[in-house]
Design a protein around this nucleic acid. Structure first.
Lengths: 113, 113
DNA sequence: CACGATTACTACAGCGTGTAGAAATCACTC
DNA sequence: GAGTGATTTCTACACGCTGTAGTAATCGTG
């Protein structure tokens, strides 16, 4: 998958945190930095090309929203990383050794269906 | 962390799969492509800068090896991804829903200490 | 139709990566 | 100890991605 730049990531973060879709101006306003709208539009277009953002072209200020939730996206990333793993189970074994106890407990619970 | 390019990744793969450390010439020979040694040396230097590769400068052909095993590195990546997660437990919950049953079973076993 | 808002197109600098030549350095041999 | 071949370092450049935005095109409304 595509790796995001800093501004792209900020924009995704906004979209993930926002309940409704946002216009380019909305996004620009919510970013702390003082950017030109065209900059934001460029970034949004690139994110659309990367299929991380969906755009409503029917409304006049086009409205943008994330195609997947932050959690869904993170899971995708996790699986992508695991895909490069070689021995997936070995990785998972090590991995659970690195997470905090509380999360290990949560996992145990979740796996006990 | 650093994201690797294609050639960098190939080189890491070699180093991960090799029991002993390799010289730049070893690496060049094992890569299928027909590259100049200097190219390989450049890549190895960059990987060293990224602390993915350790170099023995004492021997004359310097010898290179991975600083972490492929599995260790993959776990690092997983944690890095999780670090961007927001709600880690929510992500883990979704995540275990996406892995094959066999791996879920393995995880269950591993968590039952 | 004119005008203001919005979007699309074009541009460019900076950085990371792939690629390698030229220059410097090292290790031996005679 | 100088010459030579192997090795390493330095320098360079093209290309693609990202941040950034101006200019041109388009749309909607009065």
């Amino acid at each position: 998958m595509a790796t995001l730049g800093g501004l792209e990531r900020s924009v995704m973060s906004l979209l993930w945190d926002s309940a409704e879709s946002l216009s380019a101006n909305d996004v620009r306003d919510r970013l702390g930095e003082d950017l030109a709208v065209t900059t934001v539009l460029t970034v949004l277009s690139r994110l659309e090309r990367k299929e991380m953002v969906r755009r409503e072209r029917s409304t006049r200020p086009h409205r943008y929203s994330a195609t997947a939730s932050r959690e869904e996206h993170t899971v995708e990333m996790l699986n992508e990383v695991l895909g490069t793993a070689g021995d997936r189970e070995a990785v998972l074994a090590r991995f659970i050794g690195t997470i905090p106890d509380s999360e290990a407990a949560a996992l145990r619970r979740l796996l006990q269906d």
